[in-house]
Nucleic acid binder design. Sequence first.
DNA 1: TCCGCCTGTCTCGGATGCGAGACACGGCGG
DNA 2: CCGCCGTGTCTCGCATCCGAGACAGGCGGA
Lengths: 252, 252
Amino acid sequence: MSNAPAAAQALAVLQLLARHAEPMPAAAIARDLGLARSSTYHLLNVLRDAGFVSHLGDDQRWGLGVAAFELGSAYSRQAPLQRISRPVLSRLVDRTTHNAHLVVLHGRDVLYVIEERAQGRPSLVTDVGVRLPAQLTASGLAILAVLPPQQVRALFASRDDFVQRHGRGPTSLTALRSELSQVRTRGYAIEQDSVTPGLASVGAAALDHNGLPAAGIAVTYPYERVAPAEREEVVDAVRRAAADLSRRLGHR
Amino acid sequence: MSNAPAAAQALAVLQLLARHAEPMPAAAIARDLGLARSSTYHLLNVLRDAGFVSHLGDDQRWGLGVAAFELGSAYSRQAPLQRISRPVLSRLVDRTTHNAHLVVLHGRDVLYVIEERAQGRPSLVTDVGVRLPAQLTASGLAILAVLPPQQVRALFASRDDFVQRHGRGPTSLTALRSELSQVRTRGYAIEQDSVTPGLASVGAAALDHNGLPAAGIAVTYPYERVAPAEREEVVDAVRRAAADLSRRLGHR
DNA sequence: TCCGCCTGTCTCGGATGCGAGACACGGCGG
DNA sequence: CCGCCGTGTCTCGCATCCGAGACAGGCGGA
């Protein structure tokens, strides 16, 4: 049984600050987490001393500190999947000239773990570290399509598990299954306007040595400005990248 | 006086794991941090439950978890400097067709906070979140060159403060001052082979509303393959990017 | 100007977190 | 096969951490 409440509280503070777009007052942190105000200050001072939190004295607010950034960067450098995937993604971007990203499945969400901008494309509004519902993204659909069906059913056990975005996305397990069946037939997943209006994505899954999806890889493009022939090339490139990554992950 | 030792210990565990390239056994974590073994397990279990650490059961080792990545990503999305700098860097990469990066000064080191790859260039070996001695990097030299001289002296108070890499870099305050003087005269900083053999960098500082350096911005290129005319264009682009970022930061 | 509210720091006694150590299990080498 | 060593989990008594609350200072509104 874990027995270090102060440690857990410190992590809860970090995760609360991560969820807030702006720095927070200490009293709000204490209230939101149900901590004693004096304990909150103790925790914040420990976090500040280690650099995980910084105190914006003028505003009397507390925000994440640079050590949080360094910790996340260390994870990115260490994580085998990210290390292996980076060159694959770079080649995909160079080949398609569109932005590309890599996701992993976490619960019913996908987590964006790498994003790379293509030359001349908009500066990335950093989506790395962001979670989105898997069924609303091409990369997520590609992953779900190769999951065992009972696992998909377990993930989406009730209607409450379905969320929409911009009025799009499946609203039942039957609808989701139908869509996943199309993904499998087609060999790749597509998504349009669900994440960002005006943008479409083509996604495919990368499998590990057990034949299970380790990641989803996708390219995003403005669909009104990409001709069908170019789109076919994007599809081809995405599928090749997914196959390349699968091989690197020991698949088959 | 901060008073939550378990919180501090949890953070120390995270920072230890961040410094290690590979996951570690619990006993090594306990030994390295001088913690009781049983307490170490408590801490690791708290960290694991929150997702900051993952346990690799097959190997009986503990490594950073995905929540560390999410925390670092949240910082990057929130940090004003990073948000403001990203489009500037993207334009610099597109214009020069070489990899570029942004650093901030931390103590005597620079911390790499953004790196962006250019099309056709090598996949980035992620240097984001890495620290290097400021005096060995073009971006760091550019920052030091516009720091008040007494601050430079305070940073490099003794000969022990000077480190070299690949046999390069200043070894005394006098040598450093001479180099900074050249940077100021030239208007930009250059570095060659100090960080990575075969690569050179051109760097310039971005100033904030107080006229102090908020960041260093640099482009890295293989110097044997870049003609003098192209190098002049790189210099021009870096200086323009630094000036653009300075304006965005409220300078002048 | 005064008062109320918020921030940050500190006190101190009792509840609880910490750590020394025990136990069970698995793997490896002699 | 057996013993040793390392891993992970658990116990329990005492030292110390936690939290209720006090205090000081700053700010804004009436």
